[in-house]
Amino acid sequence: MSDKNKNVASTGNTVGKVTSAGGPGFGNKREDGLSGRILLKVSDLKVSYGGIEAVRGISFDVPEGEIVTLIGANGAGKSSTLRSIVGLEKPSAGSITFNGMELTSMGTEQIVKNGITLVPEGRRVFVNLSVYENLRMGAYLRNDDLSKDLDWVYSLFPRLKERHWQAAGTLSGGEQQMLAIARALMSRPQMIMMDEPSLGLAPIIVQEVFDIIREINRQGMTILLVEQNANMALKAADKGYVMETGRITLSGSGMDLAENQEVKEAYLGKARK
């Protein structure tokens, strides 16, 4: 983790204003020796609800093995972006490729089969199913032995193990968030997307959630993280994008964005009136 931060810092001052709909100039050049192969590529994505354009042509990449974060205020279009990646919304334009495969014409089932999973906003655990059954549902598309993965997620979230047979609806908010993440991991995804996992949680639990995010990433998982908690998200992320009303307005390494004056003013509690 410490050497990762160093590597990101060494990429220098890469915060750039994104003016056009085109992607930021990251490419997959990395100076740290990691492959940086682009796993997910979003190009000129647009999502509309009726006449309202919630996402107005955004482009970004998620390199394999990295944490990429999308931050922005409420209504910026972050959830719409994640939902269209996993096929819950149909984009009105643009392309989304994963491992080179075009996802926009696929259904959710097929996208999940191809290795993407979403921890939805608001956790959405199956309240009337037990913790164990929720995990089983996470592995719905798998027919192989789950015991190793169960051991793995229970080692990441020991508190879930104690509540194996408890109905998920009786868990605390933090435990439900842990369960939602664990459930997503049970599908053995190549990339996990999380929509505001820290929403509504006590600061100490938020810290725990971010520790887990880092730990999962350290074990090799690619993560696309959407947050309003810009401070925490940018600290954890290799790369960050700032969304405002359907557009990406800033991008850069997590560290650089966290230091960026505009970001600080807008999202890190120093908002100008």
Binding site: L88, E109, V112, T117, F126, N128, L129, E133, M137, Y140
Partner: peptide
């Protein structure tokens, strides 16, 4: 059974069920 679990999942939440890969 797994199909029974899927039925209970779908009865609480269509969208999240789809995210699990349930048809």
């Amino acid at each position: 059974t797994k199909i029974g679990m899927a039925m209970r999942s779908v009865s609480t939440d269509f969208e999240t069920s789809r995210l699990m890969g349930i048809n």
